[in-house]
Design a protein around this nucleic acid. Structure first.
Lengths: 107, 107
DNA sequence: AATAGAAATAAGCAAATAATTATATTACTA
DNA sequence: TAGTAATATAATTATTTGCTTATTTCTATT
């Protein structure tokens, strides 16, 4: 696959509102699936499938801890994606209110 | 539309192999539709529709000159897209061989 | 005015994609 | 080891998208 195709594939991944939000959220801190589900207010399988695409595309990595799977960014070799994320307002405000109320996963 | 959605839309536009190639080509020089058709070896309506999407997304601007419509980049307010394009090898080599042989539009 | 070339638009179709619902897997806990 | 919570996978559906073919519009030329 050419470099151009590689970049096109990465941009296609980020060209989705939900996935771009997820990546922006992960820039604030690593999150587990159930937190992302809470924040984006969609179904668990939907997020799970988005995470798989992001992982297959090499944009995030997962780390299982107990019952929870935490995802974090994996962009060391893709500085141009960090430049894109700089363009987006921080999504930090979405994180606080959503979690720690009905979930145990962050205690 | 939020800033995040704006960026997602722009990335969706660039997340297509043909459109990303077109934008990379326009970084070398402005081109008319028939030249892009020659270079990408696809149909004229196909390119025409890609150009409309890129124009609607504010990534390129057109200038009609005679029978020909020339497109050029319009990225002053989107530096993060220039950062993306830096990641892609120059597509200049695609331009030379394709044009000026069967076309009049560059004479 | 008639013709020809360049580009745009319209209509149709197949493939890809995002989402949902249902089910399976994995890991913790009582 | 049964039960439960978190996540993944499978199957399905609806929508979107990229491309093709056919037609139209616009401009220049004769």
């Amino acid at each position: 696959m050419s470099k151009l195709e590689e970049v096109a594939d990465a941009l296609k991944l980020l060209g989705d509102r939900n996935r771009l939000t997820i990546v922006a959220l992960l820039q604030v801190k690593e999150l587990c699936v159930c937190e992302i589900v809470d924040i984006l207010k969609t179904s668990q399988p939907n997020i799970s499938q988005h995470m798989r695409k992001l992982r297959d595309g090499g944009l995030v990595k997962e780390s299982r801890r107990g019952q929870w799977v935490y995802y974090s960014l994996c962009l060391e070799d893709k500085p141009y994606i960090l430049d894109i994320l700089k363009e987006i307002p921080s999504q930090a405000a979405l994180i606080e209110p959503a979690i720690c109320e009905t979930n145990d996963c962050c205690t």
